[in-house]
């Protein structure tokens, strides 16, 4: 007990402990569920690093997605794109990632040019189509202030996502972090403005419906990344609606590099 506790405070401690002491806890179920969720998070952060933010937005839960990076990402990028992109080899994470910590790093923040509520409307200007809200569980227009702005929705019936997420470090560090632990590194294409473009494809294994997933991420030099994703189904547990997602990685590159967001 800490010194600044009074006898009254001790009674409160006793109340809390006694009240919760005999609460039934199914530890095995908790741990099992945690590991399942944790694996999904881990895979999103590693195997699906390139498209992790977009996967999160789309609510696909990239538990078993495998990465197949495009060989020539960034060569035909959009209005804000570079004419002569340069490939950057993923390097080990930044030194900050090697320092042991005892508390979580504060979330990254950035000044986003758009808010979550604008994302779907702007996307529709780039790709006119029928917009519907995705299933309630994953259908989100989420405004997390300076940490994240995201929207997931159905575009012509296919699950689609756009997000702006703040990150720590430089674009190169972020690129390396996204590739850290991935089975196959995704090419990070550096652009003249200092940003880095990544894009790729995933496909879930047959037991998870073989859903295909395309995505692109622009890691800006301003401390945030723009992600866009397109899937071949209407949701994680929905059947494939087509052999391929309606938007290719190249088209998604055009989305994330578009000036429409600014």
């Amino acid at each position: 007990m800490h010194d600044d506790h009074t006898s009254s405070d001790t009674r409160v401690s006793t109340l809390f402990r006694d009240t919760t002491a005999d609460v039934d806890v199914d530890v095995a179920a908790l741990v099992r569920g945690s590991i399942d969720r944790g694996r999904r998070k881990h895979r999103r952060q590693t195997i699906g690093t390139t498209l992790a933010a977009a996967v999160s937005v789309a609510g696909l839960v990239g538990a078993v997605l495998t990465l197949a990076p495009l060989p020539t990402a960034g060569n035909s990028i959009g209005p804000a794109g570079a004419s002569t992109p340069t490939a950057v080899s993923p390097k080990p994470s930044a030194p900050m990632a090697t320092k042991p910590t005892t508390i979580p790093t504060p979330p990254a923040t950035a000044n986003f040019p758009v808010r979550a509520a604008q994302l779907i409307g702007l996307f529709k200007q780039l790709h006119p189509g029928r917009i519907q809200q995705a299933e309630e569980r994953t259908g989100r227009i989420r405004d997390d202030g300076k940490q994240s702005q995201s929207a997931s929705f159905l575009w012509n019936g296919f699950e689609t996502g756009v997000s702006f997420d703040a990150y720590h470090g430089t674009p190169a560090q972020r690129c390396a972090e996204r590739n850290d632990g991935a089975k196959t590194s995704t090419r990070c294409v550096e652009r003249p403005d200092g940003s880095i473009l990544m894009s790729g494809q995933h496909q879930a294994p047959p037991e998870d419906g073989s859903i295909k997933y395309n995505g692109a991420v622009l890691i800006t030099a301003d401390g945030y990344e723009i992600s866009a994703s397109s899937t071949s189904s209407a949701g994680k547990e929905e059947p494939n609606l087509a052999a391929e997602p309606p938007l290719t990685p190249k088209q998604l590159e055009l989305v994330v590099t578009s000036k429409i967001w600014f």
Binding site: I35, G38, K41, T102
Partner: peptide
Amino acid sequence: EDLVQETLAKVYARWRRPFGRID
């Protein structure tokens, strides 16, 4: 239950990161 699972899932993801050692 949901909060604990979400918490432990985040710890797990950190635990498995290559440089994610938690003191």
